[in-house]
Amino acid sequence: MFMLTYRFLKPWRRNIVTFVKTWKLNFVPPFLEPILYLLALGFGLGGFIESVDGIPYAKFIAPALVSISVMNASFFECTYTSFVRMYYLKTFDAMISTPISIEEVITGELFWGATRSTIYATIMLPVLLAFGVVELPSSLLIIPFAFLGGLMFSCIAMCFTALSPTIDTLSYPSFLFITPMFLFSGTFFPMSVLPLAIQYVALAILPLAHLVIVNRALTLGIFNISLLMSLLWIILCTTIFFFVSIKLMKRRLIV
């Protein structure tokens, strides 16, 4: 039986309440990170780079910074933080002793991860606007899109959480999945410099690459067919991993 009702909003809300309690601390990274990266890479390193495909370097990496932040916000929330809630705090056990089902608990966690990504993107946007590296009004769309992108990474992360025997083994996906993706998803250099075969592999398996394609189209205000393809890829990936993560979590927690 797959039980999913409005009750998924309850674990979601629990996490919002605790996030808001420490909001000052939580709001620092998304505010500070783009400033540091833009200064160091965009304007520092960017001083040596004329342009990438005719785009000034700072403008080229701005959407990548948003994408990386969206990825990190939800991925690390739904790996380490969810693992702590699940394994150490037994928050999930406490919740499923109430009318909330396990599907609702996990969905609440996934939507919370997505919400966190959205909050991060929302805080970053004014910073990027102040630096003049993103276009209006199309850039406003990165906020709702952050929710979808965040949900995708939440769902992927939750699969690792469900499969990870201990909190330490969560380092594997962080090093082997997130770090390479951070570098090779068209973030700091265009994917077109990679050999064609690798480009195809990257597009097939790297979720961040698609996030960057969509966000770059939005911040530059240039729309084309690859935007649509990436959007579809993200929706498909999110749908699959949503159900897989819930199934894996049920297998882990309901015995």
């Binding site: 009750r7 309850k10 809300r13 629990r14 309440v17 605790t18 309690k21 705090l89 037994k90 928050t91 056990d93 406490a94 919740m95 002793s97 109430t98 009318p99 909330i100």
Partner: peptide, 26 residues
């Protein structure tokens, strides 16, 4: 339910735990 292992929510106060739990029951 009083489970074998305490699973109170450390992110909330004593009364906060009760209020938070009451939300789960609408």
């Amino acid at each position: 339910v009083v489970p074998q292992m305490d699973n109170l929510d450390p992110d909330f106060t004593v009364i906060g735990n009760l209020i938070q739990f009451s939300r789960y029951f609408d």
